[in-house]
């Protein structure tokens, strides 16, 4: 059964232990700048949002890679292969979520790969804001519902949106 990181930002206290755990697990050092999960801090709203790759079904990063260095594993996870990555960074601009980042010390890109099925961030999270659950639980949709409660959220009607759905913003 496929599992995913479920982020319930409402439970996040901003302790950033997930960032430390991620960096230690994947880079062998405590360096939040190299964490693949990032906690955003909206202090005027007293709100924290853990943010990382959602493992897109048809991933932009994967499509854009010129040497097929990002593949999908049996868990549905998009994995960067260090032996193939040339460090061209096209995936870092192609991912519209900004969750693939360049690591200058290795000359390769890094992204969340769910730690091969045992995500360190979820283990480290003391409040259950980040859990690792069956996909059917619908973590992403839950996250969206939570997020609709945000007061400064915006609508969109960009050139990529089909005409019919424009300006249908908040309705029921």
């Amino acid at each position: 059964m496929l599992k995913a990181l479920v982020i319930d930002a409402g439970n996040c206290t901003g302790c950033k232990q997930c960032e430390m755990a991620c960096s230690l697990e994947n880079e062998g050092e405590f360096n939040a700048a190299k964490s693949r999960i990032r906690v955003f801090d909206f202090h005027t709203e007293a709100r924290f949002v853990p943010y990382t790759c959602t493992q897109c079904d048809e991933a932009w990063c994967q499509q854009a890679c010129p040497v097929n260095a990002i593949t999908t594993d049996s868990l549905g996870v998009k994995v960067v292969h260090d032996n193939l990555c040339v460090g061209c960074k096209v995936c870092t601009i192609a991912c519209p979520f900004g969750t693939v980042n360049y690591n200058a010390s290795t000359g390769k890109v890094i992204k969340c790969d769910l730690c091969g099925g045992k995500p360190a961030c979820a283990d480290a999270c003391p409040t259950g804001a980040i859990t690792y659950q069956d996909v059917e639980q619908g973590g992403f949709d839950k996250m969206k519902v939570w997020a609709t409660q945000s007061a400064n959220a915006a609508t969109y009607d960009g050139p990529n949106v089909p005409k019919g759905s424009q300006a249908s913003g908040t309705g029921h």
């Binding site: 909206f42 997020a147 945000s150 609508t155």
Partner: peptide, 10 residues
């Protein structure tokens, strides 16, 4: 901040 209010259509 702006992206986490998900669009409901589209």
């Amino acid at each position: 901040s702006v992206s986490q209010r998900a669009p409901t259509t589209g």
